[in-house]
Design a binder for these strands. Structure first.
Lengths: 174, 174
DNA sequence: TTCAAATTAGTCATCGTTGACTATTTGCCT
DNA sequence: AGGCAAATAGTCAACGATGACTAATTTGAA
């Protein structure tokens, strides 16, 4: 949750923007870094306003609908830096939904488990290829680091899954 | 959310249990596999009851407080298997909170970023050691797979972070 | 025996997240 | 000129997750 705030404050550090603009930016450039949805962004911006970290005013351009323009305040800047420091020094908690399935492997016939895991392996492979072929548009060093990070984990996952499948196969043959 | 249900149904596949027992099991044996909290388990069990996947009845032993005993139904067993199949074939979505910090690295003086990342590296190292020295109690193959999985990712993360730090250091020297 | 701490068992208000929805404007094709 | 799709801008009800809380019972030590 703190990282949502960090992201929004960080975006506003570059320049004041209205909600739609912020969400568009996230959608088009950061969809591989965060899964935050539009409504979450608006809600989080509201909270940041209440906390005094962000200021909002309405604007109207031509006869387009009203826009809410958000700007970071001095207190907000301080808070941003505090969140950033914490974030950089913190190890992210790793939790894999798929581990829960692994625990119950033996409730399925061995061949079925294997074919399901092989399906997963194929999906993972195509995701990796997708990431590798993604344009290095380089919206700053950071996004590239994030991509790299993602890929490293995906590849580690791939190798691990492969070894699991191998071990299950030999166990089946025995 | 589906994995919460999968976990609870899977536990009930072994035997009917009361809420406290379930939560104790998760706490003592699966805290490294899931971060589900007590209240979430109770709430999820309620939902599983409403859906007809689980049946609940109250029991009283001696003059201890009432207990809610949960048992999986035939429909529940089917649902469990369906969730399991989906879970095994699915790639887990990877999202690192720390990537958001990486994007804003340049808002801090380079030395500070570096020392924060180094702190993270140390934390990660000690977490890895903790995992490596954890007892292989082996509550089934599954938990061991999950541990292994975790470790693989932690180590990949460690190496990546190390290389990031190195690159930032050379960049600083230039 | 008595008092504090731990264990047992679960509830609830609150908060964060999101899918689905509303409503207007602009661009484009025919 | 008419009409449909896409872009623009945001709202809201509903749901999932959880920290904090209640309350009784058992255990252990002084």
């Amino acid at each position: 949750m703190d990282e949502r705030a960090l992201l929004l404050l960080g975006i506003l550090m570059a320049q004041s923007q209205h909600g739609y603009q912020i969400n568009e930016f996230i959608d088009k450039n950061l969809s591989r870094v965060t899964d935050m949805k539009k409504s979450t962004a608006y809600a989080t911006l509201d909270r940041l306003c209440e906390a005094g970290y962000v200021e909002m005013h309405q604007e109207q351009e031509g006869n387009r609908p009203l826009r809410k323009v958000y700007a970071i305040t001095p207190t907000g800047t301080e808070h941003f830096l505090a969140l950033l420091r914490t974030n950089l020094a913190k190890v992210d908690p790793l939790n894999f939904a798929s581990d829960i399935g692994m625990m119950f492997l033996d409730h399925l016939p061995c061949e079925e488990s294997l074919s399901l895991l092989e399906e997963r392996l194929r999906h993972l492979e195509s995701e990796i290829r997708l990431y590798e072929s993604a344009p290095r548009h380089g919206f700053g060093l950071g996004v590239d680091f994030a991509m790299e990070h993602h890929l490293v984990h995906q590849k580690a996952d791939y190798q691990w899954l492969q070894s699991v499948i191998e071990r299950l196969q030999t166990r089946k043959d025995v």
